[in-house]
Design a protein around this nucleic acid. Structure first.
Lengths: 149, 149
DNA sequence: CTAGCGATGAGACTGATTCTCAGGCTAGTT
DNA sequence: AACTAGCCTGAGAATCAGTCTCATCGCTAG
């Protein structure tokens, strides 16, 4: 329906493309389409949602490519893979200024983002105290959303 | 090899069996074996680990039954299903006095439990502030364990 | 313009989890 | 104790997310 084309790419897409070429990747249509789609997202999408959304646009991308690209982006640290207990992984762009976590509704599956500074501080505090090189964390709250309650 | 039989069941197994009968479940050998095995665990096991451990004992339980039983126990709130980003779910008994979270080594897959009071306080504080009926939470720290570093 | 090599995607494959359904067993009833 | 309704089980099929293979495509350096 609506054509979301040419929406100026944000800092994230720019930084991501830079990272990609630094890492020695060539350009390619499939990867560009995935990066562009993720760039518009504020929260996490599953691989299948990404496949569907891209198919609805003018650029369908093979499943193998989607997974390969998401893994590369995850490895570069520009995308976060999050598991919300729904039997499938979700992926979201990592924006330095927008770190957040998720509330998941156990009934309807809705995913809601939230952030909290004290929580982050508590996590970082732990990271320093354990005999473990912490590289990332994931916090998921389960329950019922306002609609399902 | 060693027969770990007749080890007195803990409060968890007792409470779990009570919950089950309250909820209208009949007794059954498969469920009893799963509850008994979980009762001995302090940390999370995957469904396959449970299947193997039960098979090594005198009581093998069908895979379908294991998943069905774990889901029932999860629903009753006596077992927690945790997803540690390893492509499979893990299950652990919920003990009121032993709430904990997990460190996962991205290289070797080791799972280490930890607990932290300030972190719990931060989570509970959030639970009260959001328009969402929070029923549980899961916190996973990723990184490299002492051995893999 | 062209060769070399990375990028892509159709489809087979894997592994975890769920579904189906026939037969077994529990728990009331007599 | 015997009987029976209906929950409990488990073997195997089905499903589903995710991975792998490999032939082909299309950047890009030269």
């Amino acid at each position: 329906m609506a054509k979301t084309k040419k929406k100026k790419e944000s800092e994230w897409a720019t930084a991501t493309n830079e990272r990609l070429s630094e890492a020695g990747f060539r350009r390619g249509g499939a990867r560009a389409a995935v990066v562009s789609l993720l760039d518009e997202q504020s929260c996490a999408l599953s691989a299948y949602e990404i496949e569907d959304l891209l198919a609805q646009r003018e650029r369908a991308v093979g499943r193998a490519s989607i997974y390969r690209i998401l893994e590369e982006l995850d490895e570069l640290g520009v995308v976060a893979k999050v598991e919300l207990g729904q039997g499938q992984a979700r992926y979201e762009p990592v924006r330095p200024d927008h770190h957040h976590h998720h509330l998941v509704c156990d009934k309807c599956g809705a995913v809601i983002a939230f952030d909290d500074a004290p929580l982050e501080r508590a996590v970082h505090s732990i990271s320093k105290r354990v005999d473990f090189a912490v590289e990332g964390h994931e916090i998921v709250l389960h329950g019922l959303c306002a609609d399902c309650r």
